[in-house]
């Protein structure tokens, strides 16, 4: 092997590396830096910024904030409920799609539409669907004799709001998962299904013991990416509840929304550092969950 530095390779990589350095590595490192600055004022000294020293108190301020714990709770509920449910539903839909060769491409397109549609627009549509008096969900509940539920009205309970948010989140997340799973399913040799049929496996057994294990690399990929996505939930809350972040102010606040709340008041002393501290905490939460999934996958994923 040649050990010499391959300058032309570095040259080809340079545009990407420079862009990544400016837009990914620098902000990341800078966020760490800002999070430990004391009395940070980004606008001082004609925009050069000023701080009086280094401190970990920014993290303490964030952790002591009740809203932060509300955000943690909401975010975790969104992540741990919506991710497994949406993976399960999209698996079922993908398997169903895969068994109807004729209309598959049509339905694939239909299911993929939410992915290319603006989250805010969908949120507005859902806000109407969840309307207490005219919303489709309550109309449907009416058919089976259930009284209208106040999903997102100003006096609705936390669980009702969260349920509405979850339904919207799960639905919005299906498209991409279905796309990945259907293409994954097409990679599975049909012979395994023939063999399983000969081996008297029921449909459910085939799903559980053949399809899911053979799809497990795709499921791992989807569960990691959608877990990260769910931990960063923000658009969905804005889409459904607007900038009040809930039926009651901040009742549906998420970690990203919490970070944004501080960041939007960056001109106040240290608020930018609080936002950075919140973001760093989210970063570590994300890393921890991704690592946990990686460890679990080593036992469960079959390549």
């Amino acid at each position: 092997m040649e050990k010499r530095n391959n300058w032309s390779a570095w040259l080809y990589l340079a545009p990407l590396l420079i862009l990544m350095a400016i837009f990914i590595f620098y902000p990341l490192v800078n966020a760490f830096y800002i999070s430990i600055l004391e009395n940070y004022q980004p606008l001082a000294n004609n925009g050069a910024g000023a701080a009086s020293g280094y401190t970990l108190m920014n993290f303490a301020v964030v952790i002591k904030n009740e809203l932060f714990w509300q955000a943690i709770k909401n975010t975790f509920v969104i992540a741990f409920v919506s991710v497994p449910i949406s993976i399960f539903i999209s698996l079922i839909i993908s398997v169903a799609l895969n068994s109807i060769p004729k209309l598959r491409s049509l339905y694939q397109t239909v299911f993929f539409l939410p992915y290319v549609t603006n989250a805010i627009a969908i949120g507005m549509a859902f806000a109407f669907l969840f309307h207490e008096d005219f919303g489709f969900f309550n109309v449907m509940l009416g058919w089976i004799g259930i009284d209208p539920v106040e999903w997102i009205g100003s006096t609705s309970s936390w669980w009702n709001q969260m349920s509405a948010l979850l339904i919207y989140t799960i639905w919005g997340g299906l498209a991409f998962k279905i796309l990945v799973f259907t293409s994954g399913l097409q990679n599975i040799d049909k012979q395994y299904y023939d063999a399983a049929k000969i081996d008297s496996a029921s449909k459910w057994t085939i799903f559980k013991r053949i399809t899911v294990p053979l799809l497990s690399p795709f499921i791992l990929y989807i569960s990691i990416t959608s877990m990260i996505g769910a931990l960063k939930a923000y658009r969905t809350v804005i889409g459904l509840f607007g900038t009040r972040l809930g039926a009651q102010p901040n009742s549906m606040i998420t970690i990203v929304a919490f970070v944004y709340e501080y960041r939007s008041k960056y001109y106040e002393i240290s608020h930018m550092s609080y936002a950075a501290a919140g973001a760093i905490i989210l970063f570590f939460i994300t890393v921890v969950f991704s690592l946990i999934q990686g460890v679990i996958s080593r036992k469960r994923v079959h390549y």
């Binding site: 040799d189 012979q191 395994y192 023939d194 049929k197 000969i198 008297s200 294990p213 497990s216």
Partner: peptide, 20 residues
């Protein structure tokens, strides 16, 4: 009769052993 009810054993050309 569907295959699972015929009481047959089948060895496939590529064996189709479940890899996992």
């Amino acid at each position: 009769t569907p295959p699972e009810k015929r009481g047959i054993g089948l060895v496939f050309q590529n064996y189709a052993l479940y890899p996992h």
